[in-house]
Design a protein around this nucleic acid. Structure first.
Lengths: 126, 126
DNA sequence: AGGGTATTTCAAGACTTCTTGAATAGTTGA
DNA sequence: TCAACTATTCAAGAAGTCTTGAAATACCCT
């Protein structure tokens, strides 16, 4: 991934409201959520929401589609994944301690060991 | 990791010069590099460098120590790891496609498959 | 076509971040 | 102590980001 795109994505993520948006939309997958519902869920004024949604879309972290009179927003998992991948792989050169901190976080959440190679093995398309 | 700390870390990372700093210091590990050498390596004016170094240190991504008349800066791998971990685990709930994009990036770099559970198994301290 | 709903665009102002040169502080060695 | 070196702090200006209300656009249904 190009540096400029990574910087754009990180800038986009580095804001409370936009991180809330990602966290809200992530579990919904490609189904996503119409802008109006998002505004209601997070208690945001429409122009403010629109501003942040378009920032995230511009950064390649969100995808939008029209459906009737609504605009549905959903997370662009690939864009988000590539951004994290840059930090983890290109930027940190797979530094052992960084990976350890990462794996530790997962272990806490999943009460499992390692980096979940099993889960990954099933999803990687080579 | 607390939200506010993650946001601070992401804000810190979302800047070209500071990302350069991390990338420069990462391979050096705890040995780090004195500020003057960093300035020379990246061609930065001293106040400008100082500004960005302290931003990264404030965000918990860098560590500094005095040595003679120099100040040595090194990456705080734990802080960086926790930040990435938040994005990957807490924020993205280990979404399969995000993990896949992440693993794909590593596969490209390492010409290996999966998420490198072997490397991780050796470094995680439970 | 007209009314109602959903969303975006616009413009202004407040606020924050970044860069730069000048000044300051701390450390070393003669 | 003085001079040289290393690094940080300060102040000012430029540039960018964020929020808000008002206006505009797009769409659906009757």
């Amino acid at each position: 991934m190009e540096r400029s795109k990574v910087l754009a994505a990180l800038s986009a993520l580095a804001h409370e409201t936009r991180l809330d948006l990602i966290r809200l939309l992530m579990p919904l997958g490609t189904a996503g959520m119409p802008a109006g519902h998002i505004a209601q869920a997070l208690g945001l004024a429409a122009p403010r929401l629109s501003f942040h949604l378009s920032a995230l879309e511009q950064a390649g972290l969100l995808h939008s589609r029209k459906e009737a009179r609504n605009v549905i927003y959903s997370v662009d998992a690939t864009g988000l994944g590539k951004t994290i991948s840059y930090l983890l792989n290109d930027c940190c050169s797979d530094h052992p301690e960084v990976l350890a901190a990462c794996a530790h976080g997962r272990a806490q959440r999943q009460s499992a060991q390692g980096c979940g190679a099993v889960t990954l093995a099933g999803t990687v398309k080579t």
